[in-house]
């Protein structure tokens, strides 16, 4: 094949490395007694992640994961696992997709949504751990991002409503929260968040 051009790989070298050699994978038959397990996404939407954590002295002592998804999703979960181990629960709870993609050296823009599941699964695992151990969950809600300022609608509220099946479209969300009925400036952001959640939790 004669040619004068040679393209870079689709993703960064760090992504490639994590995709080819995923870290902290939850291997078949491995003895791993998780203290908390979180699962988000669905096979139908093309991305699904399961994260198990071990907690010692308020820190993530160990973590295992499984991911059904594309290279970005696999690499993001793998990178998340390396970052989260050793963190306090509070630090881990505040791990963001931005921090993960930055550590990966960036992802193409249309691939960014593939990286949002890893931290969500991690938070779900922490919630699960706290609930199982009867510990009051002071972390829940601390990571919320305000989207509709007029009506005080956060990304977590939208996520909960979609997850519980109470909301399937914009009209439903508006009826329940009143979002986007005052100044209307948040409409694009609301749609973006809603579409992302609908994608993750299935339509």
């Amino acid at each position: 094949m004669a040619s004068s051009f040679m393209a870079q790989w689709v993703y960064t070298d760090v992504v490639k490395d994590h995709f080819m050699n995923p870290r902290n994978l939850w291997k078949e038959g491995e003895e791993f007694e998780a203290d908390g397990i979180g699962e988000v996404g669905s096979l139908a939407c093309g991305d699904q992640m399961r994260v198990g954590i071990k907690v010692r002295d308020g820190r993530i002592a160990d973590l295992r994961w499984l991911t059904y998804g594309c290279a970005s999703a696999i690499a993001s979960t793998s990178m998340m696992s390396e970052m989260a181990i050793g963190m306090t629960l509070e630090e881990a709870y505040h791990l963001t997709p931005q921090m993960i993609t930055e550590a990966l050296g960036g992802l193409p823009e249309h691939k960014f949504h593939c990286s949002v599941l890893g931290d969500k699964a991690l938070r779900a695992a922490i919630d699960d751990y706290l609930e199982k151990n009867g510990i009051e969950n002071r972390l829940k809600g601390t990571t919320a991002r305000m989207i509709c300022e007029c009506k005080g609608v956060t990304d977590h509220m939208i996520e909960e409503l979609v997850k519980s099946g109470k909301v399937h479209d914009f009209e439903g969300l508006q009826a329940l929260t009143g979002c986007c009925t005052v100044c209307g400036k948040c409409r694009d952001k609301i749609m973006e968040e809603l579409n992302e959640q609908l994608h993750i939790y299935g339509k």
Binding site: P22, L25, K27, E28, E39, L43, Q48, M49, R50, L66, T67, Y68, I74
Partner: peptide, 13 residues
């Protein structure tokens, strides 16, 4: 082996 590797990583075994 590629399919096996990906399935081993997958949430659905």
């Amino acid at each position: 082996p590629i399919i096996e590797k990906i399935r081993d990583m997958s949430t659905r075994k």
